[in-house]
Design a binder for these strands. Structure first.
Length: 571
DNA sequence: GCCGTTTTCGGCCCGACTGTTTTCAGTCG
């Protein structure tokens, strides 16, 4: 049974949680969390690496012990130290960490003094007043715990970046009603992460207490959690948490850097600072008492010997080393995109006509689009059989002739059948300008079978792009199990491109896989997979993901002129 | 538990806010 990196990371994180409740050395706890982070980000399957005999201690944060544990997990599927610790500390306590106000220390106290082991125990002890008798537990905290228990089922919800954007725009509009010097959303939103857990907003103003007073009166607030002199936290009606913070103007850059994160990136930057005898915090870069930088982010980076690093890269995935080596990518931008190579029309499950899609794309300033309706197996989507496919190709050619200012390419999104064969004859494929292939059913094949299925599809000489490669849907469907490295290697060999699907719940390839593709020399296409003309603007989300994956203009085929694109579509 | 041309031992990022205290621990980001 194959074990994924995500599963290994989860074990390390759970182990760290239990260690923390146990009261272990906090640095040991951190070591496990760092290792979990490395495991999540590595891209390559640890199982494969172990099989190849790769020296795991070469990975950051993995030393002799953790490399042995990884080997154990990969070969046995179990982490014996975790199993043992679960015997000692009830794993149900971990769940309580997600209650606001309860951390490892208090949970430990509750367990040791009152033998509380379950949510139900906790609720009973809170209601009976038993908890009140414990030192350090007052009435406010008890109320907070009770509320936390009620909210728990909603906890952990993350908002898609596209959703968060709508709330951000409304809230920023409201905040701008009063005079501000600076206003910017930091956090994972600024890093363009595919989902965001909360919003971190940074603002400066002459009178910040007035900003806080205004902020907590925002009409869409459900609850004001805290309101101090420099920061305030509220929960919106939709359960999105928003933190508003402020600093003096001369600290704006360091505060923006600090609140943008990621945490791992910040820690790495602080370590650099320490090596230089400096201290970095949200107020600036300090040598002793003296502030030597802080007004802008550029200043902060410069003070620690780095160049400016784009927010999308700040995940401690090598950006600091790349910067030192002068090898930071110049990230692709929305304005670089010259066409969209994946969209549907009424021929299959789209809502608009070929002509309507083309006109809308022309409005966006594109040079070309590809119409890529579904093939017949996807009956729910009115997939095309050979006859209708030929009919649509003819239509596309006719409309392309008629419309000036944009080229309409004839394409198709062809299903990859279970055995890896394609759901359309070569006769039709040979007439298309661009052929996308995709998996739409049987997502749960074994890793080996699924990988072979896709590699088999690559054998067909007409295939150009693998659409939404893993099939994942954020919060709804897990990615298929795939040997991405083998797929990318084959794609490179055959001149097949990977899609970065821009649908906000797909964003597939992920950032990590996009970076891996780039490193392996595989090119990508950022496509909206639009089913109506309004979703053509999803391109922004795809570009965000590509930027997080370190992609430059050159890595993305639909930044090319039509002529160059056509060359890249030759097998 | 990890890491290292200042170190194989002794470090490991840093500060705000809250609630419970009477000077601070715990939590959070």
């Amino acid at each position: 049974m194959a074990i994924t990196n995500a599963e290994i990371a989860k074990m390390f994180n759970e182990y760290a949680d239990l260690l923390e409740i146990k009261g272990e050395n906090p640095f040991k706890v951190r070591a496990y969390r760092n290792a979990a982070r490395t495991v999540e980000n590595i891209g390559k399957s640890l199982e494969e690496l172990v099989k190849e005999g790769y020296d795991l201690t070469k990975l950051p944060g993995i030393g002799t012990d953790l490399s042995l544990y990884i080997k154990e997990i990969v070969t046995t599927g179990k982490f014996s130290k975790l199993e043992a610790l679960k015997e000692e500390i009830p794993p149900s306590l971990v769940e309580m960490l997600s209650i606001e106000g309860l951390g490892p220390k208090r949970i430990r106290t509750l367990y040791e003094k009152l033998h509380i082991q379950s949510m139900e125990d906790l609720r009973r002890a809170a209601e009976s007043g038993e908890i009140l008798k414990l030192p350090g537990f007052g009435p406010t905290l008890v109320q907070k715990i009770l509320k936390g228990i009620r909210l728990l089922k909603k906890a952990g919800h993350r908002f898609k970046w596209s959703e968060a954007k709508e709330y951000v725009e409304d809230l920023l509009g409201y905040l701008r009603q009063i005079e501000l010097t600076y206003l910017e959303v930091a956090g994972s939103y600024r890093r363009k992460k595919e989902t965001v857990g909360d919003l971190d907003i940074l603002a400066t103003a002459k009178d910040f207490s007035e900003v806080i007073r205004h902020f907590v009166k925002y009409p869409k607030i459900k609850e004001v959690v805290s309101a101090g002199s420099t920061r305030s936290t509220v929960i919106l009606n939709n359960d999105l948490q928003v933190d508003l913070r402020s600093v003096e103007d001369e600290s704006y850059g360091s505060a923006l850097h600090y609140f943008t994160g990621s945490k791992d990136h910040n820690i790495a930057v602080r370590k650099l600072a320490i090596e230089l005898g400096l201290k970095v915090n949200e107020y600036g870069v300090f040598r002793g008492e003296e502030r030597i930088a802080g007004k802008t982010e550029e200043e902060v980076y410069k003070a620690v010997g780095l160049c400016y690093i784009e927010p999308e890269l700040r995940e401690n995935r090598g950006e600091i080393e790349a910067c030192k080596a002068g090898k930071l990518p110049k990230l692709v931008e929305l304005g670089d995109i010259r066409g969209d190579l994946h969209m549907h029309t009424r021929y299959s499950d789209g809502k608009n006509s070929i002509e309507e899609m083309a006109m809308a794309a022309k409005e966006l300033g594109y040079d070309y689009i590809a119409i890529t309706d579904h093939s017949q197996r996807l009956t729910v989507a009115k997939g095309l059989d050979e006859k209708r496919a030929l009919e649509e190709i003819e239509q596309i050619r006719r409309i392309d002739e008629k419309i000036d200012g944009i080229t309409i390419l004839a394409g198709m999104e062809v299903d990859i059948l279970e055995d890896g064969s394609l759901d359309m004859s070569d006769k039709v494929l040979s007439q298309l300008d661009v052929v996308l292939v995709a998996v739409h059913y049987k997502f749960n094949l074994s890793k080996e079978q699924q990988t072979k299925r896709i590699l088999k599809a690559f054998e067909n000489p007409y295939v150009n792009i693998l659409a939404h490669p893993t099939g994942r849907m954020i919060g709804m469907r897990e990615p298929m199990e795939l040997d991405m490295e083998r797929i990318l290697a084959k794609a490179k060999e055959y001149n097949i491109h990977m899609e970065i699907n821009a649908q906000p719940e797909r964003l597939d390839l992920t950032d990590i896989h996009a970076k891996m593709a780039k490193e392996m020399g595989v090119k990508m296409a950022i496509n909206t997979d639009s089913h109506n003309l309004f979703s053509l603007h999803y391109m922004e989300y795809g570009v965000n993901q590509a930027r997080r994956g370190w992609c430059e203009k050159i890595d993305i085929i639909n930044t090319r002129s039509l002529k160059e694109l056509k060359k890249l579509l030759q097998r």
